[in-house]
Amino acid sequence: MFKRLMMVALLVIAPLSAATAADQTNPYKLMDEAAQKTFDRLKNEQPQIRANPDYLRTIVDQELLPYVQVKYAGALVLGQYYKSATPAQREAYFAAFREYLKQAYGQALAMYHGQTYQIAPEQPLGDKTIVPIRVTIIDPNGRPPVRLDFQWRKNSQTGNWQAYDMIAEGVSMITTKQNEWGTLLRTKGIDGLTAQLKSISQQKITLEEKK
């Protein structure tokens, strides 16, 4: 169930391209415009997507990853294993993690069937560096609404905000991946996880038929 919630949630996290980005210092504006741009692209490019579902990787690479804190999220997933990894191991892992996100997020976007969304009203940021933004996803086919909290983090150097995690039903996506990959990290280390991520990233994206 959580895996499905995570995939549905990713439908609204794909941010804007650099040329049309919203105010990078306001995570609420980023979330709002990102959702609108993403849904528009999914709707307008269905012919290309249906002809070649792996085209979704391109959308992810162009529109999402430049505005997601990939390395920060990847380091959180590694936890204690990050500090013990060599620079070469980290570089290989982050490259594999990025390719994994292209496949995983692309597969999530393949679930698009006309969903709509509501974003919580903007709250004062103050001096906060981590801000959760509640998004409610509404399914046109009558499924119950899904309420999610996207975690946005302020870059201490640039002042810009980027998304790095999502919490559904009190469970963090980062925590879920830590639990899912924990045994592999304990037995085969970061190299074993890197190899698995490379394998997963090679899987073809498949479209979910409308139910």
Rank of each mutant, 00 (worst) to 15 (best):
N160K: 12
Y112V: 07
K102A: 15
R98N: 10
S199P: 14
R90F: 01
I13G: 03
K204F: 15
N155R: 01
I133E: 03
M173L: 14
S156R: 02
I174E: 10
P27H: 03
Y164S: 03
G159A: 11
E122L: 09
T38G: 03
E33P: 06
I205G: 09
R143Y: 08
Q115A: 02
A168E: 02
Q115D: 05
Y105Q: 02
N179H: 08
N155M: 00
K3C: 01
Y117C: 04
V135D: 02
A18H: 13
T129R: 08
A104I: 05
P140K: 15
T176S: 06
L65M: 15
L101E: 05
K102M: 09
P87I: 09
H113R: 07
A22C: 06
K43Y: 09
D139W: 07
D149I: 05
D165G: 04
F2N: 01
E33A: 09
V131K: 10
V70P: 15
D139N: 15
P121A: 06
L101C: 15
Y28F: 10
L64G: 00
K29N: 14
T25K: 05
E180G: 04
W152F: 05
Q107I: 14
D127Y: 06
V60K: 00
V70S: 15
I49F: 12
N155I: 01
W161Y: 15
A19K: 04
Y164E: 00
Y100T: 15
Q62I: 11
G126Q: 04
L197C: 10
S201D: 13
L64N: 00
A104N: 03
A19F: 06
R143I: 05
Q46L: 12
L193W: 03
P66H: 05
H113N: 11
R186L: 08
Y93P: 00
A195Y: 10
K128W: 10
D139T: 14
G182E: 04
G182W: 02
Y81F: 12
G170Y: 04
D127A: 10
I138G: 14
G106W: 03
S17K: 13
R186T: 00
D40T: 15
T86S: 12
A85E: 06
D40I: 13
R147Y: 04
K177D: 15
F97D: 05
K3T: 02
A75M: 00
Q24W: 13
M1F: 00
A19I: 02
A14H: 07
L10M: 06
R90G: 04
W152G: 01
P144V: 08
K198H: 13
T194A: 08
T194P: 09
I137P: 05
R4A: 10
Q46Y: 13
M6E: 00
E91A: 12
M6P: 00
K102I: 10
I138F: 12
M111N: 04
K128S: 08
W161M: 06
Y112K: 01
E208Q: 14
A110I: 15
V135S: 05
T38D: 01
I167E: 04
A18L: 13
Y55D: 07
H113Q: 10
Q202H: 13
A108C: 07
T38L: 12
T25M: 11
I174T: 11
D165A: 02
R41Y: 02
L148K: 00
Q36V: 10
R4P: 02
G114H: 11
K128I: 11
V8E: 00
S199E: 13
N155T: 01
P144A: 09
L16V: 13
T183V: 07
I190P: 11
M6L: 10
Y28C: 07
Q107V: 12
L65C: 06
A51V: 12
R186A: 00
Y117R: 10
E208I: 13
R134V: 02
E33T: 07
Q69C: 01
A85W: 02
Q36T: 13
K43V: 06
K43P: 04
Q24R: 11
E209V: 13
L185E: 11
V146A: 10
V12L: 14
T183C: 06
S201C: 14
V68P: 00
Q196R: 11
Q80I: 07
G79I: 01
L125P: 09
Q80F: 08
V131T: 10
K43S: 14
R4E: 06
L10C: 08
Y105V: 00
R147C: 04
L42F: 15
G74R: 00
P47T: 13
F150V: 04
T158H: 11
W152A: 05
R134H: 04
I174G: 10
Q80Y: 10
K29W: 10
K102D: 09
L16S: 03
M31Y: 08
T129S: 12
T129K: 15
D191L: 04
S201R: 11
F2Q: 01
Q80N: 04
Y112H: 04
Q115S: 03
E91K: 06
D127K: 03
I13K: 01
L10V: 11
I59T: 06
A110C: 15
R41P: 02
A195N: 07
D54E: 11
E180S: 04
Y164L: 04
D61H: 06
A108G: 14
M173N: 01
T129P: 10
K71T: 06
P132T: 14
P124D: 06
A95N: 10
R186Y: 02
E91W: 04
N141A: 08
T183I: 07
E169N: 06
I167L: 07
I190A: 06
R98A: 11
L101K: 04
P27I: 07
Q203E: 09
L76W: 05
K37P: 08
K204D: 12
T176G: 01
N179D: 07
L148C: 15
Q103A: 11
E91N: 08
S84D: 14
G79Q: 03
K102G: 14
A9F: 13
V70A: 14
A21Q: 09
K128A: 10
V77T: 09
Y81M: 07
L64P: 00
I174N: 13
K154H: 10
N44S: 12
V60G: 10
E45W: 02
E209H: 10
G114Q: 06
A104D: 04
A51P: 09
E99N: 14
P66L: 03
K177S: 15
G159K: 10
V60L: 03
V68R: 00
Q107S: 09
L64V: 07
Y164G: 01
Y28V: 14
E99Q: 09
T38K: 01
K154L: 12
P132A: 15
S84P: 12
Y55W: 07
Q202M: 09
A195K: 12
M1S: 00
V135F: 02
E63N: 04
P121L: 09
P140R: 14
I205Q: 14
L148G: 03
K210R: 14
L101N: 15
Y81Q: 12
D127P: 15
A34L: 14
A14G: 11
M1T: 01
Q36N: 13
G159M: 14
I13S: 04
I59R: 00
Q24S: 13
M7D: 00
V77E: 15
L148E: 02
T38I: 09
V146Y: 04
P47K: 06
